[in-house]
Computed example of a mutant assay.
Amino acid sequence: MRRWQLFLGIEFALLLWLGFQIITNPMALATILIGFLFLFLGMHWHRLRTFSVTFGGVLMVLGIFINPAIWLILLVAGIFLMMVLTKPKAGFSVWNHKQYVAPVTEAPGKKAGRRTIRSWARRQTIAPSYDWDDINMVVPAGDTIIDLGDTFLPKGDSVIMVRKGFGKTRVLVPVGVGVAVEHATFYGRLHFEDSDSMLHSQSVTAYSQDYDDAPRRIHIITNVVVGDLEVLAV
């Protein structure tokens, strides 16, 4: 409820700012007044009704959208809408079907070039070979779970890179694996090493306590517009 109140308060303040910009901008004010005049004539003048209403509507839209405040209003509304839709407890969430990525080890094979196609619109299961294929994912929106619990990582450094628009990302890492996290987001939370950090147009780099001494290390790099990142030991 507080988030709704905050959102409505911000939008109301931005609407007042939009009104101030329109009044103090002669071009915007004149365009809107002329557009309103054509709309008024179109509703009372039957001969050129279609032209007058269309032309008047276009002028009013132009008069409003030449002000920076309207773009900020739409941006805030879009960010808030995505925050609501990506909350797990939202009953109308569009992200109920989570993307689950579970790498599975296989017997060693010959290294050779290969082409891998990964869908953006459905669940995926990535099965790399024993010597591991670094994960590089691009996800427009939705929740993603990357489970490394049954994966035997090779010695040295491995990489998981996730670029996402909106949604939560959870990475399950086996105990004993050193973890380095680089998380950048416009708005979101980072849960790592039993601590939470809220980020607002920020990026953060963090390391697990055993990172320097661990024989196997995973480097998690995420770039998210709006969404949380959780890194859990299993």
Rank of each mutant, 00 (worst) to 15 (best):
N67T: 09
L33Q: 02
P103I: 08
I220R: 06
G9V: 01
L37V: 13
S208N: 02
M60D: 01
P26L: 13
A206P: 05
R170M: 08
K155D: 02
K89Q: 12
A28Q: 07
L48Q: 14
M27V: 15
E230M: 03
G167L: 00
P140M: 14
T151H: 08
V204N: 06
P103D: 11
L153Q: 05
I117K: 10
Q209Y: 03
V224I: 03
L41C: 12
E106W: 15
T151V: 13
V234E: 04
V177K: 06
S203H: 13
L190A: 10
L62R: 04
M43E: 13
L72K: 10
K89L: 07
H219P: 05
W17C: 06
D133F: 11
K164L: 04
T31G: 04
V234S: 01
I66F: 02
I135W: 00
V204Q: 12
E193Y: 04
K89Y: 14
A102W: 09
D157Y: 00
Q5K: 05
Y211V: 00
L190P: 10
I126D: 12
S158V: 02
G176V: 08
A30M: 06
S201P: 01
D150C: 08
I221N: 11
Y211L: 03
D143V: 06
R163T: 13
L18T: 08
I23F: 14
Y211G: 02
R114T: 13
S197H: 12
I34R: 00
R3D: 09
G113C: 03
V53P: 00
G91C: 01
S197A: 13
L37M: 08
Y187H: 06
I221P: 03
V94H: 06
N96R: 15
S201F: 15
N96C: 01
E11A: 02
I221M: 08
F55G: 01
L37Q: 04
P103V: 10
T105D: 15
R122D: 15
I146H: 04
G176S: 07
G57Y: 08
G142H: 04
Y100G: 03
N67M: 06
F36Q: 06
A121V: 14
I34P: 02
H44K: 11
N96Q: 15
D134P: 03
R189T: 10
N25V: 12
I34T: 12
T86S: 12
V171K: 01
G9N: 02
D196E: 12
F7E: 00
Y187C: 10
F7H: 00
R122T: 14
L37N: 04
F166L: 05
M27F: 15
H97V: 13
V177F: 07
V179G: 05
L6K: 01
D228I: 08
V53K: 07
P215F: 07
R216P: 11
S52N: 07
D147P: 11
A127S: 14
W71R: 03
T222N: 02
V139S: 09
A28W: 07
G35R: 04
W120R: 10
L18R: 09
L85C: 01
I220Q: 07
F166R: 00
G142M: 09
W45N: 15
T105I: 12
D133R: 11
V159N: 07
L48F: 15
S197E: 12
W4Q: 05
V61Q: 05
G167F: 03
D134Y: 01
Y207D: 03
A90M: 11
M83R: 07
M161C: 10
W45R: 11
L15H: 06
R123T: 14
